[in-house]
């Protein structure tokens, strides 16, 4: 729309991003698991284990409970589909993927929320106690993390005069000093908390628990099996990868290709993969050091994130 990028290369960027997130998401989860195992003194499975799990699950039979409607099989499709759309339009590797002008940060957030809503509805559709429990908890945490998330977006959009993702990234690349301002640092902390809450990691949710008192996400997907479960696992790991890549975009954008050309793209791919991997390792180390919060302590954490995000907006205005 704006730069001189040829249409074909923009589409290529989008495709590369989608494929990258499809493959990179499970690998990221595997990497985080390995780091965790090593820190706990265990050998752990290989990094590519989640991919192997997906291959195994994908061939298995799908079962649904007697009372489900068309929502149940649709939910995994919407979860993966909405994440694929985000991965296609967000500037993860280059500042101008296809239709990047429509990659509005608010729209991205609502697309991810669509996936969460679909999953919660799918959980309730199985008609079991666990489905309802997981959906209730996940939606409560999602609702409470929404204010912090949108106000962080507000803080990040003010200096760029737009909530368009490529515009924010371009502006960050052009004004590197702006990245060290107080509002950025405040927004960064708030955004980390929101990522942890939205992707169901410790200390909000323990992704490896199956204890009914504590599980949130796992309770929602208990009734899914076979190919559907594979899709949900894939969708969840893709969401984690997309959220981390967005975080890298917003706070450490260097390396994202701002000009067309295969070399820039390779550099973009390498730096993004390195940044997301580094973030994943950091989050895994953090996860080892904290215990899971009680469910009713989580709102305090999210309220803290909201307070930080409001401070970020106010300091953005003072600086501007």
């Amino acid at each position: 729309m704006r730069t001189g990028w040829p249409a074909a290369s923009m589409v290529a960027v989008s495709l590369l991003q989608v494929v990258g997130v499809l493959v990179g998401g499970p690998l990221l989860v595997g990497l985080m698991r390995t780091v965790r195992c090593r820190l706990e003194g265990r050998a752990g499975p290989p990094v590519r284990q989640p991919l192997l799990d997906l291959r195994k699950l994908a061939r298995r039979e799908r079962t649904t409970s007697d009372e489900t409607s068309w929502i149940f099989p649709l939910a995994p499709l919407v979860l993966v589909g909405s994440t694929v759309v985000v991965a296609a339009i967000a500037p993860l590797l280059a500042t101008d993927p296809a239709y990047g002008w429509s990659a509005d940060l608010f729209a991205v957030v609502f697309l991810l929320l669509l996936g969460s809503v679909a999953l919660a509805l799918g959980a309730l559709d199985s008609g079991t106690a666990f489905g309802g429990m997981g959906a209730s908890r996940a939606m409560t945490i999602g609702a409470l993390s929404e204010p912090a998330l949108l106000v962080v977006i507000l803080a990040l959009s003010v200096p760029a005069h737009s909530s368009n993702l490529p515009a924010i990234v371009t502006r960050s690349l052009a004004h590197p000093l702006w990245l060290a301002t107080p509002e950025r640092l405040l927004a960064l902390v708030a955004f980390v908390i929101v990522i942890v809450a939205e992707s169901g990691r410790l200390p909000v949710d323990n992704p490896s628990t199956h204890l009914e008192l504590t599980m949130i996400h796992e309770a929602m997907v208990l009734e899914y099996s076979g190919t559907d479960l594979a899709l949900i696992k894939l969708g969840e790991s893709m969401r984690l990868a997309v959220l981390m890549a967005l975080f890298a975009d917003l706070f450490v954008p260097w390396g994202v290709a701002s000009a067309p050309g295969p070399i820039h793209l390779v550099v973009g791919l390498a730096t993004t993969v390195a940044k997301v991997a580094a973030l994943g390792v950091g989050l895994a180390i953090f996860e080892v050091t904290v215990a899971k919060l009680r469910l009713f302590r989580v709102p305090e954490l999210l309220a803290g994130a909201f307070a930080l995000s409001v401070l970020a907006v106010l300091s953005a205005l003072v600086v501007a």
Binding site: A58, R59, R60, E61, R62, T63, T64, S65, D66, E67, T68, P73, P76, L77, V80, G81, V84, S126, G127, T128, L222, E223, G226, T227, D228, A230, L231
Partner: peptide, 20 residues
């Protein structure tokens, strides 16, 4: 596309059974 991929990987329709 995702629905098509699921269809390709697992052509048999979902089996209805009792919930766990």
């Amino acid at each position: 596309l995702v629905a098509g991929a699921r269809r390709m990987l697992q052509p048999t329709p979902a089996r209805r059974t009792q919930a766990w």
